[in-house]
């Protein structure tokens, strides 16, 4: 850790949580949050690979996030993992840290940091609508709220999940002779789409690209039932008329998808709200299902946590800075690099 040298007012929030080349750095606690480069001590909010990178000396995360990281990175790196369940405070140097659910994916957490009488909540990625695969976001009062801004434009207003799943099931009725290939991220979106289908009463087997199976098994071990899943192989691929097939987002453009019977190409992502974007990606059935807060939810969340100061990371920072500034918040953009847009 480097010593504090900058001229920020002593003990102001910006003096003890700031941007370093490795990522968000908390010097008095001696750790980085979701660092993009290997560091000695990392606090990881959730298991997506742009937040949970390999190679750190030690990792503090929820037990579920650690399970995900271990499944992804195995024993490749000599990382020491420390599991911290939601709601249990831990002392790190001069800082107290507590995790609270972020509602993004299994194990996703906000990190509440307390130091010098001030509380900063780093929310990581989050969403506000119910998700059968993880506990809901829990608003925590704080002095500074650090929020994502993936969908921070007022054109992003996600419709209800049930409505979108309904469109998928409707398409299955119209095109019973075609496979329905749904692009989903391996962690979170995949299991959520399966769970939403089950909630909608779809009990038939769901066919899975091999790359998605590992994390599905992990979800089931953590108490998220997914129902019958069948691995798509070269043997059964051509027989999937009228079946739902889940695969990573790029699979429809891949040679893997060729043997599928005339697939309807669907994609589950918040970006599907923009027609031209869906069309350019060759998507025939765009499903607006997102694991991120939409514009209204970002706005509401900032109001609920009641922090006078809001720091905004990865996404369309300028729009949220502008909007919150007009509402009287001290809002600024944190120029973090290295985070990917969902769907890119």
């Amino acid at each position: 850790m480097t010593a504090m040298t900058q001229s920020t007012a002593p003990r102001s929030p910006a003096s003890w949580l700031k941007i370093a080349p490795e990522g968000l750095c908390c010097a008095p606690g001696g750790f980085h949050i979701d660092p993009v480069q290997p560091v000695e001590r990392a606090v990881i909010t959730h298991g997506h690979s742009d937040h949970a990178r390999p190679g750190h000396g030690s990792v503090l995360a929820t037990p579920e996030t650690i399970a995900i990281m271990q499944a992804r990175y195995g024993d490749e790196f000599p990382t020491r993992y420390h599991a911290l369940p939601y709601g249990e405070p831990i002392r790190l140097g001069e800082v107290s840290l507590t995790f609270a659910p972020a509602g993004h994916v299994l194990g996703s957490a906000q990190a509440a940091l307390e130091h010098a009488g001030t509380r900063i909540v780093v929310s990581g990625d989050y969403k506000r609508r119910p998700d059968p695969t993880c506990p809901p976001f829990q608003p925590m009062p704080c002095d500074v709220f650090v929020t994502e801004a993936t969908f921070a434009l007022p054109v992003f207003r996600h419709p209800s999940d049930a409505h979108e799943i309904g469109r998928l099931l409707h398409s299955l009725e119209i095109f019973p002779e075609r496979a329905h290939l749904v692009g989903t991220y391996a962690l979170g979106k995949c299991q959520r789409v399966i769970s939403l289908l089950r909630q909608a009463g779809y009990n038939r087997p769901i066919y899975m690209h091999g790359a998605l199976l590992g994390l599905c098994a992990l979800y089931e071990r953590h108490g998220v039932p997914l129902g019958p899943l069948i691995h798509v192989t070269n043997q059964n691929k051509a027989e999937l008329k009228g079946q739902i097939v889940l695969a990573p987002p790029s699979a429809h453009a891949d040679r893997w998808s060729r043997a599928l019977p005339d697939p309807v190409v669907a994609m589950a992502s918040g970006w599907m709200r923009i027609k031209q974007r869906a069309k350019a990606g060759g998507i025939e059935l765009p499903l607006v299902i997102s694991d991120h807060a939409d514009w209204d939810e970002l706005d509401r969340t900032v109001d609920e946590v009641g922090a006078p100061e809001v720091w905004i990371t990865h996404g369309r920072e300028e729009a949220l800075v502008h909007h919150l500034g007009k509402k009287g918040y001290r809002a600024r953009a944190l120029a973090l690099v290295g985070f990917e847009e969902e769907g890119q």
């Binding site: 434009l153 007022p154 054109v155 207003r157 923009i274 027609k275 031209q276 729009a319 502008h322």
Partner: peptide, 18 residues
């Protein structure tokens, strides 16, 4: 906000609709 949204979406009718 409308201006930024329009830049992002690219199509006037779609931006206004959303």
């Amino acid at each position: 906000l409308f201006g930024w949204s329009w830049d992002f979406v690219g199509d006037l009718a779609e931006t206004v609709a959303l």
